[in-house]
């Protein structure tokens, strides 16, 4: 069993390379054929964070309203956890942020979602650009089965048509940031699906961050993993927040408590309460929040 890379070392590496990648981004901007989503271009040198704001967001599956009038802001470079019982709408809401919700036939979203003051539902916005800037990691690890580890990480860049990027460099950076580099650096050509469950999920995370998004959405990223792999993912989230704004949906309240600075509780499609995690877990305002987290229902 190989030793895990020292998380502190990886954090330093992530910070170092992030400034380098800002310079790379500047080069990219010149090389890119189409205009990127404005906020990316206007980011100040260094690490300006990105905020997501939801305004009266509602989501529908046909006639059924799964999310009702949610107002919520996700602070920059912070981890926000979405908790709530099954079917409360937390996954649906998060999928509205990167506009994946509308891929479902008959599904639609209403209201406003802004990334740094840009309304991503505006008709002039290219939805694929939204998804490049707002990445998503799914519950079940889903590496592309026909691709090697290297190709998997590079897939995001290739699929979204990014040019002028040194793939090898970017892939190594992403794998380091995901804490996977030491484990796979000697077998980048091996199939992506030859890794263990926890490694596959970190591979998917590397794939997501390789395109350098501004926000990373995680839909129950550790629920399919064993406890050790789960803790590794959580450590990873702590490191990643230095660079990205992170929203994590979780049904595991202890995970929300360990990982998120802010927690939002949803019930039946509504946002009941949100605030600093330690307040929610020691003294929540709403009795419904209290009932849920103390296990009186759900």
């Amino acid at each position: 069993m190989s030793a895990d890379p020292d998380p502190k070392e990886d954090a330093r590496t992530v910070s170092d390379i992030s400034t380098r990648s800002e310079q790379r981004r500047a080069r990219d901007r010149d090389a890119r054929p189409t205009a990127p989503v404005p906020s990316a271009a206007q980011a100040a040198p260094g690490r300006a964070g990105h905020t997501i704001a939801l305004e009266k967001l509602s989501a529908y599956y046909g006639e059924t309203r799964a999310v009702r009038d949610v107002d919520l802001t996700y602070a920059a470079n912070q981890v926000t956890a979405m908790i709530g019982p099954s079917g409360c709408g937390k996954s649906t809401l998060v999928r509205c942020i990167n506009r994946m919700h509308e891929e479902i036939p008959g599904a639609r979203a209403e209201g406003k979602v802004t990334l740094d003051d840009v309304d991503i539902y505006d008709s002039s916005i290219d939805v694929t650009m939204v998804r490049r800037v707002i990445g998503m990691v799914f519950q079940k690890p889903n590496p592309f089965p026909t691709m090697s580890i290297f190709d998997n990480v590079a897939a995001g860049l290739r699929l979204s048509g990014v040019r002028g990027v040194d793939l090898r460099e970017r892939v190594e950076w992403a794998l380091r940031a995901a804490g996977l580099w030491d484990e796979v650096k000697d077998r980048l050509g091996a199939p992506g699906i030859s890794l263990s469950g926890g490694q596959q999920q970190r591979l998917c995370i590397a794939r997501t961050i390789a395109v350098e998004p501004e926000v990373v959405l995680m839909d129950e990223p550790a629920s399919a993993l064993d406890p050790i792999a789960t803790l590794k993912i959580e450590d990873l989230v702590h490191e990643l927040k230095e660079r990205f704004t992170i929203v994590i949906v979780t049904h595991n309240m202890q995970q929300a408590a360990r990982v998120a600075a802010t927690t939002a509780f949803m019930l039946n499609g509504e946002l009941i309460e949100h605030g600093p995690t330690d307040k929610i877990f020691s003294n929540p305002n709403d009795s419904r929040t209290e009932d849920y987290i103390t296990g009186k229902f759900g």
Binding site: M253, Q254, F281, S282, N283, P284, T289, E290, I293, T294
Partner: peptide, 9 residues
């Protein structure tokens, strides 16, 4: 049992 909120208090 990892008590929270009012249970924790």
């Amino acid at each position: 049992q990892a008590p929270v909120a009012s249970d924790l208090r």
